[in-house]
Design a protein around this nucleic acid. Sequence first.
DNA 1: CGTGTGATTGAAATGCTTCAATTATCGTGG
DNA 2: CCACGATAATTGAAGCATTTCAATCACACG
Lengths: 251, 251
Amino acid sequence: MTRSPTSRGEVTGRRPKIIAREFLTTGGQRPKLDNLLTSAEQARLATIATLLEYQTGGVAIFSEGEDAHFLYLVDSGIVRISRHLPNGDRPVLGFMWPGDLLGIAEDGRYINSAESLTTAAIFRFPLERLRHLLLSEPLLQLHMLTKVVHELRKAQRQIIVLGQFNNVKRLASFLLDCRQHVELFESLTGRLILPMSRFDIADYLGTSPESVARAFATLERGGFLRRTSPRTVELADPDRLARFVRGFPQG
Amino acid sequence: MTRSPTSRGEVTGRRPKIIAREFLTTGGQRPKLDNLLTSAEQARLATIATLLEYQTGGVAIFSEGEDAHFLYLVDSGIVRISRHLPNGDRPVLGFMWPGDLLGIAEDGRYINSAESLTTAAIFRFPLERLRHLLLSEPLLQLHMLTKVVHELRKAQRQIIVLGQFNNVKRLASFLLDCRQHVELFESLTGRLILPMSRFDIADYLGTSPESVARAFATLERGGFLRRTSPRTVELADPDRLARFVRGFPQG
DNA sequence: CGTGTGATTGAAATGCTTCAATTATCGTGG
DNA sequence: CCACGATAATTGAAGCATTTCAATCACACG
């Protein structure tokens, strides 16, 4: 896979600014939370939550192997989940968006590492207190379970992408995923803002940055998109791109 | 990917024999259940469970797109989870073993298809009643959540295998997974029984049956295993195989 | 004892990775 | 505000790995 340029692993020593015990104040735009949790549930969670503010990308949230004392929930911003391999590679298991859960542990330790990719606000729940809360509020627990199921879906989609698609379709599929997130997509211009480097995309798609660049070039030649800068693309016709991913050669 | 020989998709019309409402009678060997559920919980689940017996491999348990009315839990045997792609391919998302959950739905419909790979006994829970039971028994629900987390872990491991490993390591990693399951592994002889065809393995590893055969040949040349029949192999030195997967060229 | 299916192997073609070189971009300090 | 240096991104070309198509081998089952 890839060599190791600075931007990819660089977990700065910066610590996030801890705001306070404040959870889901009304007013702000909190995409998925309001759909899943009633305000009463939010209030109960608020009693044990801490909101962490990550001022920049590249800050470690937790690391593989650490004792797990917290569960996290993204409020705003984007987080990258990765794992360290003995050979030095660092595959990206997924990108986490507002409303996504992270820090699911196994045997009391974190399995993956998480770093902020952008500025981010993230709720943090002490595991022991969360456990008690979930036991006393079965409906809230059911909503948590729904979130974990959502993570499972994301993972299964990725298994199909990695197992079935070539590099060009992998990238196309990834761009369509990004398009789902309002934070990145200006529907008026069709412009998509990518918050991650080619290295991150490559590590997520199981390929090399060079191959990602070539895949971009291929899609551009095919008239699917236009690169306006390394971090922004204009998707000409997303539906055609989706058809292309589903197997129609020319969309 | 692969063409479509008969053995892979052949979902016979056979229906499973429905045994009765009987759940976790003591005495039988039920590997993972007893670890996760107390006998009181088992008794509560038993009140809504039906045990289905699949007399042979290749029987459909549920299919992608169907209305989801049940959640399933493998009691014995092995189940294959797959998805249909527009181009006719049928990637295998995973193999399910005793203690694994299947039939997790989205928007009321099954996302994947499930077929028995061997004779199998599978518990079936009506979703609506299960929902009520989980709400009234938070601890039981927490155990369910643990199972879903386990599925998430399996999926993430597979993402790494597909994203990082070449065909030989993918197969090696798969064989080591199989070795974990007592049903397949005779520790005395070191013999491993594979309950699935090369086509199934290929669809699981995101490659072709030919490449799986070549990967077997490569591992055999490397002294890692010996093929005693198409469906049985002897792992010479599993620890060495594990080291090989972790990146040491010669183990 | 044939027949059909699964498994294996061979050989050509394709796609991907890797290494190297070049170009573009961004942040910084003059 | 511009120039510079560092880093990211792209492109080219060679070498590998994998796929694909075709042929052969092995085995189970009637």
